[in-house]
Computed example of a mutant assay.
Amino acid sequence: MTDSTPQLTRLRTRMLSTAYTNADIWTRDSAYLTDQAVAALARRDPGAAETLAKSLLAPEFLNDTRILGAAVEAGIDTTGWEERREKIRAYAREAYELSPKTDPADEAGRIWASLYDHYPQIAAALADFLRAMPDTWREDLFTTSPHSPGATPQTRELPGPETAPYDPLDWEDCPACAEAQDSCRYHRGIYEGMEYQRDLITTALTDHTAMDQLQHRHAELDAQRARQATSAATSTPPPDPTTPAATA
């Protein structure tokens, strides 16, 4: 881009590139829908769209008064916004201030309380399971031996055992994400799946060798389906001459 490139073009380039390259599905959707809204404004009022783009690329300090004023002007109910903001900020503070070495007793108490609150039947079954363990449970589980879980090397850091139920539709207020103070196992799996899909699509679009192999494989599958169709057509048994349809 040059110095003469309109601010609107700069803004749309940034938003569309974000929608194309970002791995987070909500960021992609927000960037694309914002671009479409700005494009609609440009078709209706090019001057206002250019002014908006300029202000977005050189933003002023955004305070609560401006946000709440715009919400009131749009007729939006903001009564629950402050509580939700404090909740999200509390999660962020806890994640930032969390000690890397958590006390085992405290963590055990937290996990048990969360399990009891959300899944009491599982908590009861776990209590029965632990009560039925032999008196040698500590030696059986934690003695240093090739078969001891404590001696098994961890190849990678595993996510924490969330006991709160996850919310598949909400990445901000998911109880399991809040408990893990990170993405829960469900949302982390979705994120890794999107990463894999993005890498696969990027490879297919940019790697000519992979594209040739993909096209070759499609051609093989088409040929295989054609052979199966031909074989099915030729293997159809002839009609029985004794049937009424054959003698008619």
Results as ranks from 00 to 15, higher is better:
Thr230Ser: 10
Ser30Asp: 11
Ser183His: 06
Asp45Arg: 08
Leu205Ser: 05
Trp112Gln: 10
Thr247Gly: 08
Ala42His: 14
Ala90Glu: 14
His187Glu: 04
Arg66Ala: 14
Thr78Asn: 01
Asn63Thr: 13
Arg14Asn: 10
Glu192Val: 04
Gln7Tyr: 15
Pro59Ile: 01
Ile76His: 01
Ala123Met: 01
Thr18Ala: 14
Arg66Ile: 09
Ala95His: 00
Thr102Phe: 11
Gln121His: 08
Ala37Gln: 10
Gly80Ala: 04
Pro153Asn: 04
Ala229Asn: 10
Pro241Lys: 05
Thr144Asn: 08
Glu195Ser: 08
Phe61Met: 08
Ala248His: 15
Pro149His: 03
Gly189Phe: 01
Ser4Glu: 14
Leu57Ala: 07
Tyr196Gly: 12
Gly75Phe: 07
Thr9Ala: 11
Thr236Gln: 15
Thr206Arg: 14
Glu83Ala: 15
Met1Gly: 13
Leu169Lys: 06
Trp26Ser: 12
Trp171Cys: 01
Ser55Ile: 03
Glu172Leu: 05
Thr13Gly: 13
Tyr32Arg: 15
Ala23Lys: 02
Ser145Lys: 01
Tyr196Asn: 13
Asp64Val: 07
Lys54Met: 12
Leu130Arg: 07
Gln36Asn: 10
Leu62Ser: 05
Asp45Lys: 06
Ser99His: 02
Ala229Arg: 13
Asp212His: 14
Glu179Tyr: 00
His218Thr: 09
Pro241Thr: 03
Arg156His: 11
Ala248Trp: 11
